[in-house]
Amino acid sequence: MFRFAVILGLLSTVGPLAIDMYLPALPLIEKGLDADVSSVQASLIIYFIAFGVAQLFFGPYSDQVGRKKPLFIGLIIFAIGSIACALAPTIGWLLAGRFVQGLGGAVVMVVPRAIIRDKYTGTQATRLMALIMMVISVSPMLAPLVGSAIMEVASWRGVFWALAILTVSSLSLTLFALPETLAEDNKVPVNVASLMRGCGILLRDKKFMGLTFIGGFGMASFFVFLANASFVYTAEFGLTPVQFSLAFAVNALGFFSSSQLAASLGEKFGMEKVVATATTGFLVFTVLLLGLILAGFGTLPVIIGVLFLANACLGLVVPSTMVMALDDHGDMAGLASSLGGTLQMVAGGLMVVIASPFFDNTALPMVAAIAFCAVLAFILTRLVLNKTDIAMTPAE
């Protein structure tokens, strides 16, 4: 399982790296392309939306032809988008390149999740998902530092050239190290009618939709952080790109370190109870941080420390809800994974759009938006999860 997790984890880092590596460059891109903050933030939003919508194609397509061919197609598209971003003469060109990147990067979100469902369910799947996140955790912790180092010698454009090179390595990994996991007997011909029928089943499934959006609002809070942290940390607290990268790594560490406990805690207490407890903790810490900032105690150490605790709770929610949402839909894992991913990414992008008019390069609007996401996730958890399941442990 560990070797399998490493392969899927390395493939899955391609999409997140397209976000994390260039976060320290956002203020430089603003100056270099003579753009405003909203336009630069749009380069994240448009990536999220394309990343989400394209999953609706790659998921069903992987159910029809297998898991490897879609990976090849998506990675090639991602490489083309990366080169376009590296050559961008204007912010409009950069936005177009980011859109293409998002279209291709979607494949490394939906297909690995479908591969996991091909081989495992329940806590085994959660454990594999957590192992993958452990591999992915290297990305948000080290990628901003790598991006800062690249910018020292090659400007912000070098970040996108590095992503193009990384994509070539991922193509090689897919070709030589990843087995096909979808058996011929399990391949499902896809047409518009079957796609609409499958989407209808999933959209009417209250548990699937609820779990998707519990994780989705958790991810949306992280998207808000991604879109604003570099501006807040550099403008309000005067951090350099390298210092920002270190601060960002601390917050990411909270998420990914706790994700490794999700499967073990799920086996001991039940996955529903873990999600319910973690969403409560996420709500408590984000509202606490909002109160501290309003009271005038929003120092940089306080913000980093409390966000670390909040993200630790979030690390238990996201992998668990991903697995739980797919458990009852093994016969259309690719479609379920893609629809769930699309809904989550679009929700995250829209949350950034809705909150962006309030952002002013200070911590207050950013933390308020994060706390709002926590409130929504908490409410959904109480509405969706069975109260009896939450109260019981597996032993009971």
Rank of each mutant, 00 (worst) to 15 (best):
F4K: 01
F4A: 02
F4S: 01
V6F: 06
V6W: 10
L8V: 12
T13P: 07
G15D: 14
P27A: 09
L28H: 12
E30H: 14
G32N: 12
G32K: 10
D36S: 07
D36R: 07
Q41R: 12
A42K: 07
S43C: 12
L44Y: 11
L44K: 05
L44R: 06
V53P: 05
G59V: 09
P60R: 11
P60T: 09
S62F: 05
Q64Y: 12
P70R: 11
F72Y: 15
I80K: 11
G81D: 07
I91W: 00
W93K: 00
G102Y: 08
G102F: 08
G105K: 05
A106R: 13
A106Y: 05
A106F: 10
V107Q: 07
P112V: 09
D118W: 14
Y120K: 14
T123M: 12
A125C: 06
A125K: 08
L131N: 15
I132V: 13
M134E: 07
I136H: 01
S137N: 02
V138K: 00
L142P: 04
G147Y: 03
E152S: 12
V153L: 15
G158Q: 09
F160Q: 06
A162F: 14
L163D: 08
V168L: 15
S172E: 02
T174K: 03
L175S: 08
L175A: 14
L178W: 08
L182T: 07
E184H: 08
N186H: 14
V190I: 15
N191E: 10
A193F: 04
L195M: 14
R197E: 13
L202A: 07
L202T: 10
K206Y: 04
K207T: 15
T212H: 02
G218Q: 02
A220D: 04
S221W: 00
F223H: 08
F223W: 10
L226R: 02
A227V: 05
A229G: 03
S230D: 07
Y233I: 11
T234Y: 03
A235P: 01
P241M: 08
A247W: 01
A249E: 04
A249K: 03
A252C: 08
G254S: 00
S257L: 01
V274W: 12
V274P: 06
V275P: 01
A278I: 00
G281I: 08
L283E: 04
L283T: 05
V284P: 05
F285N: 06
V287W: 13
L288T: 15
T299A: 13
P301D: 10
I304R: 07
F308I: 01
F308Q: 00
C313S: 13
G315N: 00
L316M: 09
L316F: 00
S320H: 04
T321I: 06
M322R: 03
M324F: 02
A325Y: 11
D328M: 12
L335V: 13
L335I: 11
L335K: 13
L335G: 10
A336N: 03
Q344V: 15
L350A: 10
M351R: 01
F359D: 08
F359S: 04
D360Q: 09
P365H: 09
M366A: 09
A371N: 11
A374H: 03
V375T: 12
A377V: 05
I379Y: 02
I379A: 13
L380H: 07
L383T: 13
D389F: 05
A391T: 08
M392K: 15
